[in-house]
Design a protein around this nucleic acid. Structure first.
Lengths: 335, 335
DNA sequence: TTGTATGCGTTATCAA
DNA sequence: TTGATAACGCATACAA
C-alpha cells in the first residue's frame, strides 16, 4: 500500500497542504483547532513525511554529518546520544561516519556525498580540524567541534584540566604517598587528543598548589595488559618503599583504575585503605566496583555542540563560541 | 554560486535532460558521440547529481543501511570497503549504523528513518536477524546478511569451519604436542557470533581426521591481558611437560596469537621452532611479525553481499542464496 | 537514438 | 490564519 503523503493528510483533515506543512514545522501559529485536526489526521494515517521531498523542496539536506573515531565506545555512545537528541528535536538527520582508520577518512573527504549530504559537520576529534585546514578543506559547511577545542571554530569541550585539578585536590587531602598513572599519547596522529595531557596538567597543578608532590608517575598505553603491568610495577614500588603505603593513586582513565583495582585485590591489599584510587571517566562498571572517579557530562556536551551548529544553520553570524563542561568528582569506596 | 543542475548540463551539451539522465544511469545505449559530449559538459561544469532529487523522482532512496557492531575494527573496515565499493558502482549510498550498544539498536529500529532511508538492509551480525524476526520486524526491505548465515535470507559468509580445518590439517603435519586457544563466547547476546565455535569445530575435526589429538585446550576472553595470561598458562604447562616442546598451537584469533608470540619471546623460546603458532585473521601486523595465520577474503565477502542485495533490488525473486568464502592459510615464520 | 513533458512530495510564496 | 500554486532537480514514459 502506498505511503500516505502530505496531500492525503490535507484531504483527510480538510485543509490545504500548506497548513499541514506548517504544523509539521511548527511554523507561524496555526490556530489551535486546525492544528489538532491536522495532528489527528497524521496519526490516523500513520503519516511520515518523506525526507527526500523535504530536502529537495527546502534546498537543504536536513542532515548533519558526524565524523567520529571509533575508540572508547562508551564515551562515543553517550556523545552520540546527546547529539542525536538535539538534532532530532530540530528535525535533522544524523549521518555517522565512523573513522575506522585513515583510509576511511580519505574516502569520506573524497566522496562528494558530504557536499549534498550535509548542511553541517560535527567533528569529534581534535586533529580532524587540523586536517581540514591543512588540506584547504575549509569545509563549506558550518562546523562544530565536540570534545575538542580550537580557535575560530564553534566547539563544545570537556575541561579535562579542571578534571585533573579536582582529582589532584581530592588526592591531596589524603596523607601518604601520591602516585599517578598516565595514558601514553597515541602514536596515530589522526586520533591524537589532548585529553590526557590536560588531565595531567590539572592534576599536577593542584597537587603542587596543595604543597604536595607526586612520589612517582607511571605511563601505560590504553590497553588492559599494559595497564595491569603498570599497576603491578606501581604496587611493587609502593610495597617496597617503607613509606609507600597507604598511598593514593590517580589513574587518569578508568581502564587504568580498573587494572589497578584488580592488582590491589590480588595482593590482598584493601582498596580505599591501603591503596586509594581515583579514576576518570565513570565507566558503567565504576559504580558497582565502588570506584571513586570523575564523571563527565558527555551527553550535555554533545547536546550543546548540536545547539551551536543549529544556531549557525539558523543564520547566526557571530564569532566562534566555546562551551565548556566540567567533570564532577564522584566519591565512592576506593578513595 | 549555484550548483549546476541537470538542466545546465543539458544546455551546455546541447541535448535534452533525458539524455543526460540516461548517460548518468548507463541506460539504453546513448550514441557514443552524444555520450562524450554529455560527459564533457558534466566535467566542465563539475556537475554532481543531486541525490535528493534523484530519490524523489525515482521513488527510491538509493540508500542501503548497514547495521554493524563496532568491535574488531580492522575486520569491519575491510568489510565496509567491500560493501561500499559495490554499492558505489551501482550509485547507491551507504548509511552506516554503528551498533555501539543495545540502546542504539533500539534507536534505529524505533526511528522511522529506516523506512525512508533505505531500499535495503545489510546486517553484519548474526543475532540481529533473530531480533528482527522476534520483534516481527520482518523488515519490509530486502535484507542480506554478511559474515553470518541464516536460512531464508540472502547471505554472504565466511566459512570458519573450513578455516579451522585448514589450521587443523596444517597443525597435524607437525610432530609434537598440539594445543589450541579458543575465544570465550561473548556474554552479550546481541553481538554473539558463531565464528569461534565454527573455527573450533573445523580444527577439532581435522585434527581427529589426521589421527592426532589435542594435548590441551585453553579459553581466553578477547582481550590482551586475558590472552597474555592464557599464553603464559599454556607455556607453563608445555614447559613442565617433558614432551611438551616443541609444540604447535592454534590460536583462533590473531589477538591471541600475538599474545602468545610475546610470551614465547619473553621466555627465550623460538617461535616456529620450540613453539609453532598458527593464528587466524591475518591482522595488519601479522606479516611483519611473521605470523602464520588464516587470511579471510573479507572485502570479497562484503562485495558479494552487496551484489546479492542489488540483485534483489533489481527485482530478482528467487529463493534465498548463500555465498560462501573460505579463509586461506598464509604460511610465514611461526609455523 | 533523442527530446519533451509529466510526476515525485515537500517547502515557500503569494493571495485571499 | 489559511489555501492554492509554483518551484526544487531528477527519472521516466512517451513521442518524435
Amino acid at each position: 500500500m502506498r505511503k500516505p503523503t502530505i496531500q492525503d493528510v490535507a484531504r483527510q483533515a480538510g485543509v490545504g497542504v500548506g497548513t499541514v506543512s506548517r504544523v509539521l514545522n511548527n511554523h507561524t501559529a496555526v490556530k489551535g483547532l486546525t492544528r489538532e485536526t491536522v495532528l489527528r489526521a497524521i496519526a490516523e494515517l500513520d503519516y511520515t513525511p518523506n525526507p527526500h521531498a523535504r530536502r529537495i523542496a527546502g534546498g537543504k539536506s536536513y542532515t548533519i554529518s558526524v565524523l567520529l573515531p571509533v575508540l572508547t565506545t562508551e564515551f562515543y555512545a553517550r556523545l552520540l546520544d546527546g547529539l542525536e537528541t538535539a538534532f532530532q528535536e530540530a528535525r535533522y538527520d544524523v549521518a555517522i561516519f565512523p573513522l575506522l582508520d585513515r583510509s576511511r577518512l580519505e574516502r569520506y573527504l573524497g566522496s562528494h556525498t558530504l557536499a549534498y549530504q550535509a548542511d553541517g559537520l560535527v567533528m569529534a576529534t581534535y586533529n580532524l580540524t587540523q586536517m581540514f585546514h591543512e588540506r584547504r578543506l575549509r569545509t563549506q559547511q558550518p562546523t562544530v567541534l565536540v570534545d575538542a577545542y580550537a580557535d575560530n571554530v564553534d566547539c563544545s569541550f570537556m575541561d579535562n584540566v579542571v578534571g585533573g585539578q579536582l582529582a589532584g585536590e581530592y588526592a591531596a587531602t589524603f596523607s601518604g604517598a601520591l602516585y599517578a598513572v598516565w595514558v601514553e599519547t597515541e602514536l596515530d596522529q589522526l586520533f591524537t587528543t589532548r585529553v590526557f595531557e590536560d588531565r595531567r596538567a590539572g592534576f599536577t597543578q593542584a597537587v603542587q598548589d596543595a604543597g604536595r608532590c607526586v612520589q612517582a608517575e607511571y605511563t601505560s598505553s590504553f590497553d588492559t595488559l599494559a595497564a595491569r603491568n603498570t599497576a603491578a610495577a606501581l604496587l611493587d614500588a609502593a610495597q617496597a618503599d617503607p613509606a609507600g603505603l597507604p598511598c593514593t593513586v590517580f589513574a587518569s582513565a578508568d581502564l587504568l583504575a580498573g587494572a589497578l583495582l584488580d592488582e590491589v585485590r590480588v595482593r590482598s591489599l584493601t582498596p580505599g585503605q591501603d591503596v586509594r584510587i581515583i579514576g576518570f571517566d565513570d565507566q558503567p562498571w565504576a559504580a558497582s566496583r565502588g570506584l571513586t572517579t570523575l564523571h563527565q557530562p558527555v551527553e550535555s556536551m554533545g547536546y550543546e555542540a548540536a545547539q551551536l551548529l543549529l544556531s549557525r544553520l539558523g543564520g547566526f553570524k557571530g564569532p566562534a563560541r566555546a562551551r565548556r563542561f566540567e567533570p564532577r568528582l564522584i566519591i565512592r569506596d576506593t578513595a
